[in-house]
Design a protein around this nucleic acid. Structure first.
Length: 107
DNA sequence: CGGTACGGCCGTCAAGTAGA
DNA sequence: TCTACTTGACGGCCGTACCG
């Protein structure tokens, strides 16, 4: 699946949903934070406006993806932490049980 | 030293979801 | 219903370890 995105048919009016406009160069320039043409002219032609909207959308999504991954890693770290804590508790309880059994049996 | 497998990170797309 | 946000999936790049 993945890159089948081409389809996302843009309607005839050129009133493309703004996002879903394929840029010619989808290849990524690793780490190159393309500083999207910020200062857009007030009366930018339709095409430029659409392109600008797409850039903005991509940039937002880029950051959203980063944040999403960060949160996921944090979540996994927390889970791993919890596992460690619970394993320790389990060990302690097992030892405690053993000790109690000893006491009980030697009565 | 070149080739390869592997893991990590990234950007993008698409689908799902929540809120206005 | 529309819009913005979230996140799983995918493919690509890069660094590292290992092997012949």
């Amino acid at each position: 699946m993945a890159v089948t995105g081409e389809d996302s048919e843009s309607d005839a009016t050129g009133d493309i949903p703004a996002y879903q406009l394929r840029s010619p160069s989808s290849g990524h320039a690793q780490g190159a934070v393309m500083s999207s043409s910020s200062g857009h002219a007030p009366s930018a032609p339709r095409g430029e406006e659409v392109t600008r909207k797409r850039q903005v959308r991509l940039m937002k999504n880029r950051e959203a993806a980063r944040e999403c991954r960060r949160k996921k890693k944090e979540y996994v770290r927390c889970l791993e932490n919890r596992v460690a804590v619970l394993e320790n508790q389990n060990k302690t309880l097992i030892q405690e049980l053993k000790a109690l059994k000893d006491i009980y049996c030697h009565k």
